[in-house]
Amino acid sequence: MNRTYLLLLVPLALLLLPAAQRSSPPSLQQTLQANEWKKRVLLVAAPTAEHPDFRAQKAQLATAPAQLSARDFLVIDVLYDQLSPADKNYLTKEIGVQPPRFATVLIGKDGRVKMKSARPIPLAKLFGTVDQMPMRKQEMQRGVIDTE
């Protein structure tokens, strides 16, 4: 009887294993790659969500949801105390962010870093930078995305 139970349990476990593996969140690199040519990404990076600059940047962003949406933004909170070692390595080597320092990083739709700041980026500067990008200018000319 135990052998029969085991024979039923093993295939069931094998079926559930891929589902369990899929449930882990994607890495930072995977998230950025998945949004390439689709979204402009703003990384807001800090040691914890309680960091004063993190809170200040998030508060600014919270006042402008329509402007962020109009410019196809994806805002990603990057909290160092929650990153995997692989994500920390990617953030340091590929993005150029040095934990535990605060950083805000603008990544264009082409996947390249467009702006990095060790302080919160004022919204006027952030939107002004994006609105000067060639792809954004094309979007505005085609009327695809509002400037509001």
Rank of each mutant, 00 (worst) to 15 (best):
E50R: 13
L9Y: 02
Q30H: 11
V75G: 05
R136E: 11
Q132G: 04
I107L: 03
D53I: 00
S69L: 08
L91F: 06
E50M: 08
R22V: 09
M140L: 13
R3H: 15
R55C: 04
V130R: 07
W37I: 01
S117C: 09
L7A: 15
W37T: 05
L123F: 13
T92A: 12
V10Q: 04
T147D: 14
A70K: 05
Q67H: 07
A64P: 00
R3C: 07
G108C: 01
L14D: 05
K88V: 08
L15C: 15
R40L: 10
I121T: 04
R119D: 11
A62H: 11
V113S: 05
A34K: 04
L14N: 09
D131P: 05
G108P: 00
P11H: 11
K109V: 07
A62G: 15
K93E: 15
R142Y: 04
T92N: 12
L74K: 08
A86E: 15
Q82W: 05
G96L: 10
L68Q: 00
P65L: 09
A62I: 07
D131I: 09
A34Q: 11
T4P: 02
M135N: 06
A62Q: 13
L61R: 07
K38H: 12
Q30R: 10
A59S: 14
E139N: 03
K93F: 07
M140D: 05
D131T: 01
V130M: 04
L9C: 00
K38Q: 12
T129S: 05
A34R: 11
K58P: 02
R136K: 11
A20Q: 13
G128Y: 09
E36Y: 01
R22Q: 14
A56I: 08
N35W: 01
V41R: 02
L14G: 01
A20D: 02
P18H: 10
A46L: 03
Q29P: 07
D110H: 12
A19T: 12
